[in-house]
Amino acid sequence: MALSVAGVSHAFGDRRALVDVSLEVPAGSFTVLLGLNGAGKSTLFALITRLYDNVSGEIRVFGNDVRRAPSAALRQIGVVFQSRTLDADLSLLQNLAYHAALHGFGRAAARARAMELLEIIGLADKARDKVRALSGGQARRVEIARALLHDPRCLLLDEATVGLDIGARDGIIALVRGLVARQGLGVLWATHLIDEVAPSDRIVILHKGRVLFTGDHDALLAMTGTATIREAFTTMTGSADAQSTGAVAA
């Protein structure tokens, strides 16, 4: 199992952000973490990446407990955060080299690896350009390349397509799905956009800090007796929520 989260709760003061959350991401799977804004997706990411401590429950990355063996766990994880985390004033190569250094790569190895990944995401010719000059979609692809630099086997993406146009979005999704298919990565894809779910995906529905459903596409439809994921999501979470926020796009 690439990632397993068992019985994790977290609170900020009185506000309970996550309540007894359990989910699993098998290696070689594309698992969609579906939830509206504020459902607790980013909090869960912060717990998995050890920005916060999981006070109750257990989080394991390929069997490594993130509390007891944070180093071994973090080595296996690549993360793309919701907010942009590249240095706009530095070049693509400099950004990637910095991240490689954070994972203990020597300079030469870092460069070689960075160039290789820039090739893969189709931005090798922009290696020396500043990140500032990139489009939103290109910057996202660089962030994915960065997340892959240290060859993690588990990739976490938090709303990776937010703010991107349809073309760029499709490009990002295709890139990540390709990684799952070809490299056997376990991917946890957090999103509030229902149309990013494919029939082959595993689905976890997170709502107001609680997991309402885990399973595959067909199981979700069967359980809710609906024809589409959108209807199933609306049924499970309450239609008023979905409509009032307008967050769930069809």
Binding site: T49, R50, L51, P70, S71, A72, L74, R75, I77, V79, F81, Q82, S83, R84, T85, D87, H99, L102, H103, G104
Partner: peptide, 14 residues
């Protein structure tokens, strides 16, 4: 706020 600190803190080093 922008997340760069997060990038630093997900490094496996202590």
């Amino acid at each position: 706020e922008t997340g760069t600190m997060r990038t630093l803190l997900v490094s496996p080093f202590p």
